[in-house]
Nucleic acid binder design. Structure first.
Length: 652
RNA sequence: GCCGACGUAGCUCAGGGGUAGAGCGCUUCCUUGGUAAGGAAGAGGUCAUGGGUUCAAAUCCCAUCGUUGGCUCCA
């Protein structure tokens, strides 16, 4: 009879009829046994379900395996339950917060109460998890009434689960049980614990309950699991590789920057090679900015406190920033410049403005100082003194969208030129539930948010939207890039601001001879030089494109007899704006080559008897070996071509 | 700021209640060598800082500073 059957649409568009109440596991079985073994869960009408859950209506079904991100998430979510089961077995009476999957792996927040737990105990938990996984316990879904759920967790005295239950509606509550462990959980889960073949608990950290720093801090245990041992090994290898790309390590090895306890936390010292790299990035952007109609300006490193009271920054950040500098004049206080915008506002105000001269685009590589929380500091990506590639565009309201789109083009040009292909474009909006965090009226905010959304739509950019991530004066479009360990960092940012122009009473005279208020666009394609260099280092593993490389060549004399000639060659190349040096060490050529290769120097120029006679050098390319002998003239042509190639390569 | 871990030579790291070790780097000497490590000798450390325990502390304990994995924060 037809009502006993359900029509199942599979991803390839094929439609099959099955008995009503069939599970996706059984559907998989009907296709192949191998597939059935690999099915972790299934997407039923767009919702991820347990593969054992009966399907009662006509549905579209996508079987999920380890190769689907939903499959992985389900696997890791179930692994979090497995870890909780192990923990409960080892530490009876502990309480659980939440235990979700994350980008790679999962965590569970645990309140150990009076029991002690530290990282040395992780091995014990891993062992227990392995033991429990081998029992191949099924994950069993159970619908429960709110009352029963509350009774259960009251019995366990788990105030965290009880708090979670408060927000749930009766009738929508499910428990999942595997072995001896029962958890409040929406699911879905993998069929049984036996699928979890390889596991590693990676670290342990404190985490505030519900992310609120005023509430209790729980112990968060992170772990990662795999369906095959081999995949765990590969993952650990990947981590190892990522460590090699760590910008803090590379920055030290390549002598780009350093920190000093004496100078202070989070205050980077840029060494000669790092400075060279920065300067090259700066001139690259400056060139693009000149083309785009920007003008350079310079403002001082400190500003009167009143400047930041006007901007609202003082009220927002004053207590948590570097405290005011006092002068012999009791009534005078200065702050280290925490951002450039107020200074640029004052530049705009320097004289009356006409609508005809807008937009005005003031650009400054402005160094700013922010007292970041000590726990936040991280290499070059989060520091207390850094240089923004800042600019502020003052324009008429009718120009906002156009200007915004031009800035998007500039940011994309910068990212493409430097080979950042994997970035997320994030629209950061105000949290309307928490208006206290922001300055300005609804009208200004709505307009600014509309400007950004429309501009990105018209540019055809794929974006994600985050509520509550806006700056306190306006919404932003952020360009997020990941580091070697897949942590996301904001690099480029574009912000629309109707508020600071109001606070600074910025004006221009319109065609109607009336005073009008301009709109400000804040923007920084790199974000900051520090963070950008950090991420660039991790992306290139220190092998910069030639045009950017702080060391482009090294000259290797066969013996000290050829030192003078080597110096002469070096001089000529320096005049051509190339950077390198002569390896004058008393070592054999083989040794010098090895060291240059290890240091990733793109080109080696070898000079000896032969070369002096013909006025030439022998070129050796990093990773490729000897590529022949070139006259000085050809060498310079060759290097020009290589530089150009490195630029266009990134641009293509 | 909070929870946890760590801090030994310029770098990477070993050691560990009886006053310090390796490799690389550096210096000097020998060697003047043609495409991925030539040889020898030597210099370098109050074992982050300050307290405490001890006959004795780099080692154990506490605090501070710094780094670090997270949380919170990020103009």
């Amino acid at each position: 009879m037809s009502e006993q059957k359900v029509k199942i649409t599979l991803p390839d568009g094929s439609i099959k009829k099955y008995d009503k109440g069939i599970s996706s596991h059984e559907i998989a079985l009907s296709i192949s046994e191998g597939l059935a073994r690999n099915v972790l869960a299934a997407k039923v009408n767009g919702e991820v379900w347990d593969s054992s859950r009966p399907i009662m209506d006509d549905s579209t079904v996508k079987l999920l395996t380890w190769n689907d991100s939903d499959g992985k998430n389900t696997f890791w979510h179930s692994s979090a339950h497995l870890m909780a089961e192990a923990l409960e077995a080892l530490y009876p009476g502990i309480k659980f917060g939440i235990g979700p999957p994350v980008e790679t792996g999962f965590y569970y927040d645990v309140d150990f109460g009076d029991q002690e737990f530290d990282s040395a105990d992780l091995g014990k938990v891993e062992q227990k998890m392995t033991e429990l996984a081998r029992q191949k316990n099924d994950y069993i879904r159970e619908e429960v009434s709110k009352k029963d759920a509350i009774d259960y967790f009251t019995g366990k005295d788990d105030e965290y689960k009880l708090e979670l239950l408060e927000d749930l509606e009766d009738g929508s509550i499910t428990f999942y049980k595997q072995g001896n462990f029962t958890d409040l959980c929406r699911g879905p889960h993998i069929p049984n614990t036996g699928i979890i073949k390889a596991l590693k608990l990676t670290n342990i950290a404190g985490a505030y309950w519900r992310g609120d720093e005023n509430r209790k801090q729980l112990t968060r245990l992170y772990g990662v699991t795999f369906p095959k041992k081999k995949e765990l090994d590969e993952y650990l290898m990947l981590l190892e590789e990522a460590r090699k790309r760590d910008h803090r390590k590379l920055g030290k090895e390549l002598e780009l920057f350093t920190f000093s306890e004496k100078v202070g936390q989070g205050l980077p010292l840029w060494l000669p090679k790092g400075t060279k790299l920065r300067e090259k990035l700066e001139s690259f952007l400056k060139k693009a900015q000149v083309k785009a109609g920007y003008e350079s300006v310079i403002s001082p490193h400190i500003g009167n406190k009143n400047l930041y009271v006007t901007s609202g920054h003082y009220e927002k950040y004053g207590d948590d920033s570097f405290q005011p500098i006092h002068t012999p004049n009791e009534n005078e206080e200065f702050l280290l410049k925490p951002m450039n915008c107020p200074h640029h506002c004052e530049m705009y105000k320097f004289r009356p403005r006409s609508y005809k001269e807008l937009p005005i685009r003031y650009a400054e590589f402005g160094t700013v100082y922010r007292y970041e929380q000590s726990g936040e500091l991280h290499g070059l990506t989060r520091v207390r003194g850094f240089t923004q590639d800042d600019a502020h565009i003052f324009c008429r309201p009718d120009q906002v969208k156009e200007e915004f789109k031009k800035v998007i083009d500039l940011v994309l040009y910068v990212f493409n030129s430097l080979g950042f292909n994997n970035f997320i474009t994030q629209i950061s909006l105000r949290d309307p539930e928490n208006k206290k965090k922001y300055i300005g009226d609804d009208e200004a905010w709505n307009q600014a948010e509309k400007d950004i959304i429309e501009a990105t739509e018209e540019k055809g950019i794929k974006t994600v939207t985050e509520i509550g991530e806006a700056a306190f004066y306006g919404p932003k479009l952020d360009f997020m890039v990941k580091d070697a360990l897949k942590r996301s960092w904001q690099l480029g940012t574009i912000q629309v601001d109707y508020n600071l122009p109001k606070r600074f009473e910025l004006e221009y005279v319109g065609a109607d001879n009336q005073k009008h208020r301009p709109v400000m666009i804040h923007r920084a394609p790199f974000g900051s030089m520090e963070r950008f260099v950090a991420i660039l280092l991790e992306h290139t593993a220190g092998r910069f494109p030639l045009w950017l490389s702080p060391l482009q060549y090294i000259i290797l004399p066969i013996s000290e007899k050829y030192a003078n000639y080597a110096n002469k060659v070096n001089q000529e190349l320096t005049l051509k704006d190339l950077t390198g040096y002569v390896d004058h060490r008393d070592e054999k050529i083989g040794r010098k080559i090895r060291d240059a290769e290890m240091n990733k120097i793109p080109f080696m120029f070898i000079v000896g008897e032969k070369e002096i006679e013909s006025g030439s050098v022998s070129i050796r390319k990093h990773g490729e070996g000897d590529i022949g002998t070139y006259s000085m003239k050809d060498l310079i042509l060759f290097m020009d071509k290589e530089i150009e190639k490195s630029l266009s390569l990134e641009n293509s």
